[in-house]
Design a protein around this nucleic acid. Structure first.
Lengths: 195, 195
DNA sequence: GTCTATATTTAGATAGAC
DNA sequence: GTCTATCTAAATATAGAC
């Protein structure tokens, strides 16, 4: 039991990431000092550097893990019809965005604070996710069940529309989540001309 | 001609705002120091404070003037049909977003850096703009030329979709602006069930 | 109106004790 | 693994000269 003062090695690392995600999502990367982060976690500043090399690495860790979880959670079903696959994508994206709103917000807002190499790496992961949607749209056109003027533009437009839900939806509000997804799915169906 | 050293009172104020808009849109409010701003403008730090009270007032000035210009430039035409009014809104919003991309981006990203009173004031202006779109959608439903499950949600979804164009559109790219607006207008028509 | 100089606070990061 | 103490740089803002 030769423990030092407040040692809890197993949980401090995750705690730092949790608080950093929340604080940066709320106030922005540059506005969250290492001291404020340490205060939120309940440790001293120096302690942070036992878990992360520097502030930029912390941001990159948050963004990379967010994108990897997103890509890992989304599983397209190539057996289903394109329309059904699109519906699954819409409902998945909304649910994921609401369940991980801080991560979604942060990953979108803090791209500009990544150093060039990190920016490029995250860009590749984002592109993979976008492409998985574009694949569905192209398959829908090929199958004759969707009408789309420009699949790339439509991909970007739909993702912007769906992700925007994090900006105004508040739990306990006028709409419940199922109803929310239903309405969005209706908008998407119309916009891609589902027959 | 008793001018002091580099005095050019008439243009320094506007120059400060122009550079601040560009720098904050690119790097974020907290990341742009008054020194960096002064460097970009070509004056010393102290000079800035002859034109603005403090950094927060500068941000608020940028956001307020942006919203007021937006509201002033958008003129609905109550004589036209709802569908025609919606088309005008879509094309206006895209053109405005591309012509003022720094201002649009900044006004969206830096809301969280406004002090409470300022946040509230900007929120009211944003709400007025949103309401002008929702009015069109409601009129379209009443006229029987649009099918909309939830006008408020659809308003937020459409604005998010249209504003998203600033995130990926680059002048000189694959699409010209007219073609871009055409495609977006097609998406919007479908999503609100224009008959 | 602008510059130089400075007051004061806060930032990211590290060293060494426990 | 964590804390205390500290280094160095950079932040916002102001005072007074020209």
């Amino acid at each position: 039991m030769a423990r030092t003062r407040g040692s809890r090695a197993d949980i401090t690392g995750p705690l730092i990431r949790e608080h950093a995600r929340r604080l940066i999502a709320r106030h922005g990367y540059a506005a969250v000092s290492m001291r404020k982060l340490a205060d939120a976690v309940g440790v001293q500043v120096g302690t942070l550097y036992g878990h992360i090399p520097d502030k930029q690495a912390l941001l990159m860790d948050l963004m990379r893990s967010h994108m990897e979880t997103l890509l890992d959670d989304w599983r397209d079903d190539p057996q289903a019809t394109p329309v059904r696959r699109l519906e699954r994508f819409v409902r998945f994206h909304i649910a994921y965005s609401l369940d991980h709103s801080d991560g979604v917000f942060l990953s979108y807002m803090e791209l500009r604070n990544l150093e060039p190499d990190n920016f490029h790496a995250i860009g590749l992961l984002r592109r993979r996710y976008e492409d998985s949607l574009e694949r569905i749209l192209k398959d829908g056109v090929a199958a004759g069940t969707m009408t789309i003027a420009d699949s790339r533009l439509t991909t970007m437009a739909l993702i912007a529309m769906l992700t925007g839900v994090t900006n105004w939806y508040r739990a306990g509000g006028r709409l419940d989540r199922d109803r929310l997804s239903d309405v969005y799915w209706g908008l998407v169906q119309g916009s891609v001309g589902v027959t």
